[in-house]
C-alpha cells in the first residue's frame, strides 16, 4: 500500500459518492450515461468474483463490496426509480456499448495472466473498464449544459486511474512489481479522459460553464 494507491481508491469512492449525491438530491440522472453505469456493474462483477475464492482483505474487501453495491444501486435508480428514470437522456445516450464488450472478452481470452476462469474475467474487467467511460463522454459532448456534479463525477473518475498510474510507477521502482495488463489498460483509460481534463480544467480556471466541443 502506498499514498498514491490510497488516494486513488478514495478518489474513486468520492466519484461514486458524488454521483449518488447528484441522483438522490436532484432526483435526476440528466447527463449521466446509463450505458457507462451498466458497463461499470459488469466491470465490478467480473473483477470481484475473487471475493468468494480468495482470503478477505481488511482494505480491499470493504471497497469491493461498496463498489459493487453502489454501482448496482445507481443502475437500479436510473432504470426503475419512478422519478429518476424519467430524467434519463435516453435519446442522447446512443453509444453502442455492446460493441465494447465483445472485443474486451476476446482480448481477455487471448491476453491474461493465467488461462483460468477468474483470470480471464479479471482481464476482461480491466479492458472493459478502460473503455467504459466512452458512452458517458459521448453523452457529455451532446449535452448542452453539463451540471457541476456530473463534471466533477467524470473528473474524479478519470483522476482515480491517473493516480493508479502513479501507484504503479512507485511499485515498479519500490517493489519491483510489473503488471502489463492493468498498466496498458490504465494508460488507455486515462488517455481517453485527456480532452475532458483539458476542457474541465479550462472551465474551472476561467470560472465558466463546462462545455465539450
Amino acid at each position: 500500500m502506498n499514498a498514491f494507491r490510497l488516494l486513488a481508491d478514495l478518489t474513486h469512492l468520492l466519484s461514486i459518492i458524488i454521483l449518488l449525491v447528484k441522483i438522490r438530491t436532484t432526483k435526476s440522472c440528466a447527463g449521466i450515461s446509463l450505458k457507462t453505469q451498466d458497463l461499470y456493474v459488469l466491470v465490478f462483477i467480473s473483477r470481484y468474483l475473487d471475493l468468494f475464492t480468495r482470503p478477505l482483505s481488511l482494505y480491499n474487501t470493504p471497497f469491493k463490496l461498496v463498489f459493487l453495491a453502489t454501482s448496482i444501486t445507481i443502475v437500479y435508480y436510473m432504470r426503475y426509480h419512478k422519478v429518476v428514470k424519467q430524467t434519463y437522456n435516453k435519446d442522447s445516450d446512443t453509444f453502442k456499448h455492446y460493441f465494447l464488450i465483445l472485443p474486451c472478452a476476446v482480448l481477455a481470452f487471448f491476453i491474461n495472466p493465467k488461462f483460468t476462469f477468474i483470470e480471464v474475467l479479471w482481464s476482461f474487467s480491466i479492458y472493459l473498464e478502460a473503455v467504459a467511460i466512452l458512452p458517458q463522454l459521448v453523452l457529455l459532448q451532446s449535452s448542452s449544459n453539463i451540471d457541476n456534479l456530473t463534471g466533477n463525477y467524470v473528473f474524479m473518475l478519470g483522476a482515480y486511474r491517473a493516480l493508479y498510474l502513479l501507484n504503479w510507477i512507485y511499485r515498479f521502482f519500490a517493489e519491483d512489481v510489473v503488471r502489463w495488463i492493468p498498466w496498458i489498460a490504465g494508460l488507455v483509460q486515462t488517455a481517453l479522459y485527456a480532452d475532458f481534463f483539458y476542457y474541465y480544467i479550462k472551465s474551472w480556471r476561467n470560472n465558466e460553464r463546462l462545455k465539450l466541443p
Binding site: 475473487d50 480468495r54 480491499n60 469491493k64 495472466p113 493508479y164 501507484n167 519491483d176 512489481v177 503488471r179
Partner: peptide, 10 residues
C-alpha cells in the same frame, strides 16, 4: 520483476 497473478489492487 514478477507478473504475479494475485490481485492485491482494486
Amino acid at each position: 520483476a514478477d507478473q504475479e497473478a494475485t490481485h492485491d489492487e482494486l
